[in-house]
Design a protein around this nucleic acid. Structure first.
Length: 263
DNA sequence: CGGGTTTGACCAGCGC
DNA sequence: GCGCTGGTCAAACCCG
């Protein structure tokens, strides 16, 4: 990709010219080249994303197979969701919708952390407000309860508990679907493009595997064509916000704009 | 002062 | 009905 970037000192756009030498034509040529560059970059990003999606689906399939072999956690009961979300249902319908709800909107994520780190923080980019902590019977480590605090209308919940078998493993259980955009979509774009950079910024956190991928709507959105376009737009916006990118473009342009000697 | 965390109390489902 | 348990509430507290 690097070879496609316009370097200020690169002679790619023709020889240097004197300030009075048809700058409009040169600028038009530059504009065309930049447009072409932009189109190629967009295609590259799309290809990159397609490959990423395929790999992600493959990983999800493997993870779901692992879940089936290990056996899913028994469905937990819920107190008020039945009344809130299925008020018109009868008892059976309520129970069924509750089960379907749990199946359809819950996902488990295993995150590797430093065993000595007592915090139950899973860096998933969303903003969470802790509303409770409990020590459960089958696990000596406390379970923390979080609610999404990014949007008041978002009722997504998250439970985080250290694995009893592996102290270095945090188990984050998500319930519900975010009804807002990812607050750090920029980070996600970077994560999609260069995960190694993201890992280096958070060395102690290592997402291991995402369970029940088919029901993880948050990730499911990523696989939609609609998200495709949004992702490309986001990446373009990201590039244009990148100081290095804008500086390079500015340098390239300024290098070709006729300079008038100081009077 | 506003937002987040802590923590004991409370509530509701489930099994016996 | 009772006890156990997971989930939630809310007051007190903390912090920037």
């Amino acid at each position: 990709m690097g070879s496609n970037w316009i370097h200020p000192s690169s002679p790619g756009l023709g020889p240097r010219r004197s300030p009075d030498r048809a700058p409009v034509g040169v600028l038009e040529a530059m504009l065309n080249q930049i447009s072409e560059e932009n189109r190629r970059l967009t295609e590259m990003v799309s290809d990159m994303y397609t490959n990423h999606s395929a790999l992600r689906r493959r990983l999800s399939d493997l993870a779901s197979v692992a879940t089936c072999e290990k056996g899913p956690a028994p469905p937990k009961r819920k107190r008020v969701d039945c009344d809130k979300h299925a008020a018109s249902d009868d008892e059976h319908g309520c129970k069924r919708s509750r089960e379907e709800d749990a199946m359809a909107k819950t996902s488990k994520i295993y995150v590797r952390t430093v065993p000595s780190d007592p915090s139950l923080v899973v860096m998933d980019g969303y903003r969470w407000r802790k509303y409770g902590q409990k020590v459960t019977r089958d696990n000596p480590f406390p379970r923390a309860y979080f609610r999404c605090s990014f949007a008041p209308s978002c009722h997504v919940k998250k439970k985080v508990q250290r694995s009893a078998e592996d102290k270095s493993l945090l188990v984050a259980t998500y319930e519900g679907v975010h009804n807002h955009k990812h607050p750090s979509s920029l980070d996600e774009v970077y994560a999609l493009m260069c995960p190694s950079i993201m890992n280096s910024s958070a060395p102690s956190i290592d997402p291991v595997v995402t369970r029940q991928p088919d029901v993880d709507r948050g990730l499911g959105e990523i696989d939609s064509p609609k998200f495709d376009g949004a992702l490309v737009e986001q990446m373009v916006a990201t590039l244009t916000k990148d100081p290095n990118f804008t500086a390079a473009v500015a340098a390239a342009i300024s290098d070709r704009i006729p300079r008038h000697p100081p009077t």
